[in-house]
């Protein structure tokens, strides 16, 4: 019980991210179907993106007058009233009121690149299906073993 309170409950989010990541990794290694492997890859990458974004979350600490965890850092867009003042005097902005923009930027591009990668993976899958008439790993390996010359033709 002590272990639970000390090590699991405060890090509940991280535990779930790691579990989702393990699911994806397991699917990538163990599943025989190529599309299942790609779904596993996407789950794996979104788990890591989730972890990064969660690092940027900012509860505001004591700044907003509440206890940590009760208040919430807002989105990293400066409010209209504040914006005009801030363009001359940067110290007007209390950066702890906002979520950290850096993980957002890195992960935003990672998502778009991730879907491009997924597209390439799916294209390879279709190409394999065209040549071997199957998207099951063991069947493809059996076909390659049965006819070694197929690797070179086309």
């Amino acid at each position: 019980m002590h272990f639970l309170n000390e090590h699991i409950i405060p890090f509940f989010n991280y535990w779930i991210y790691v579990i989702i990541m393990m699911l994806g990794l397991h699917a990538m290694i163990v599943k025989r179907n190529l599309i299942k492997k790609l779904i596993g890859m996407s789950i794996f990458s979104t788990a890591i993106i989730l972890f990064y974004v969660s690092i940027g979350v900012n509860n505001g600490g004591d700044i907003q007058g509440g206890k940590p965890g009760e208040t919430h850092g807002t989105i990293p867009v400066i409010e209209h009233e504040l914006a005009l003042e801030a363009s001359h005097d940067p110290t007007k902005i209390d950066f702890r009121r906002y979520a950290n923009p850096l993980p957002h930027v890195l992960m935003l591009t990672a998502i778009v690149v991730g879907v491009a990668t997924l597209g390439v993976g799916l294209a390879v899958t279709q190409r394999i299906y065209r040549d071997y008439d199957s998207i099951e790993e063991d069947e493809i390996l059996a076909k390659i073993a049965a006819a070694p010359s197929r690797q070179t033709d086309d």
Binding site: I35, L38, I39, S42, T46, I49, V53, S54, G56, V57, N58, H72, G73, T74, I75, P76, V77, Y98, A99, P103, H104, V105, M107, L108, I111, V112, G114, V115, L118, G119, L122, T125, Q126, Y129
Partner: peptide, 28 residues
């Protein structure tokens, strides 16, 4: 988590485009 830009991208990419790519591959 206040990451609106990331959420926006994921809504367009993950829920829309990548699922459609997968369905296209399954169909083919």
């Amino acid at each position: 988590m206040a990451a609106v830009d990331v959420a926006f991208t994921e809504a367009a990419v993950g829920a829309g485009v990548s699922a459609l790519f997968m369905i296209a591959t399954v169909y083919q």
